[in-house]
Design a protein around this nucleic acid. Structure first.
Lengths: 136, 136
DNA sequence: GTTGTTCTCAACCAATCGGTTGAGGAAGAG
DNA sequence: CTCTTCCTCAACCGATTGGTTGAGAACAAC
């Protein structure tokens, strides 16, 4: 995790089962580090590290309450992930001709993209180091 | 990645910018290992490893065409991820949105319904090793 | 056959990850 | 003040990750 973008941090954060479980618990109610640590067979320091990862990913915030550090779920980052996923899922399904599933979805948000033809080709992102130009 | 569940594999796979970019390219069109490798400043072996990760996550499948191994995006796994995310995003927002409505309700009919617990409280999953029971 | 292309496997390496233990800071309680 | 509670920081450790190079398998083409 060396100065990576937020999307990478978010996916990295949710890649660990313990961290996903922490998110699940925090979605029910806020909790302190100690409370969370009781649930897992690991030290409080380890849980604290996991929370740090979640916090740096923007998924969790922490306030002060005496010597306690209550953890709070911040679900905005979820939108970042789902929008990334949905973008490419939609493009892929569009390409495979699964228009039935697509049309049902377009009834919701009315995104009028060309059926199969356009294949826009502008998938920008924090591209990793490239050697040459775009692919064709 | 030592025999982890599919959800972990999927998040791990998308945690790398190069792999996300591969997914982006494959959403436009299928591609061979060599074609993909031209786009990045790394060896074909490295790209092949990335594709292996994506394949084991179920995000990419590969067929044979002579000595080529065309890669194909399999977007079903995306649903697994979005449904996980949406579940907890919804629960969190529900919890935040209900706070005001809850307080108004508690002024009316007292403490008959449990504030946060009634909605579900069963966030099962392939729980990591726990020490004790559920969180209160 | 030989040659060339495409791709994978194996070994290696530095860096990171997920855990540990020990020490210590910060704040409430006696 | 001391003591305890809650939590973080630092150092360490083994396993994994993301890259490399070299060898070679599989297939097409000559």
């Amino acid at each position: 995790m060396v100065a990576v973008d937020q999307l990478s941090r978010a996916f990295v954060a949710l890649a660990d089962p313990t961290r996903r479980d922490i998110v699940a618990r925090l979605s029910v109610r806020d909790a302190t580090v100690g409370e969370l640590a009781e649930s897992y067979a690991m030290s409080m320091q380890a849980v604290s590290k996991h929370l740090k990862v979640l916090e740096e990913a923007g998924l969790v915030s922490r306030s002060r309450d005496g010597q306690r550090r209550p953890c709070h779920l911040e679900p905005q980052v979820f939108d970042l992930m789902t929008s990334w996923i949905e973008r490419y899922r939609r493009q892929a399904e569009e390409r495979f001709g699964r228009l039935d599933a697509l049309l049902a979805e377009m009834a919701d948000d009315g995104a009028r993209t060309e059926p199969t033809g356009s294949t826009d080709g502008n998938h920008e992102e924090d591209r990793p180091q490239q050697s040459e130009g775009a692919p064709s």
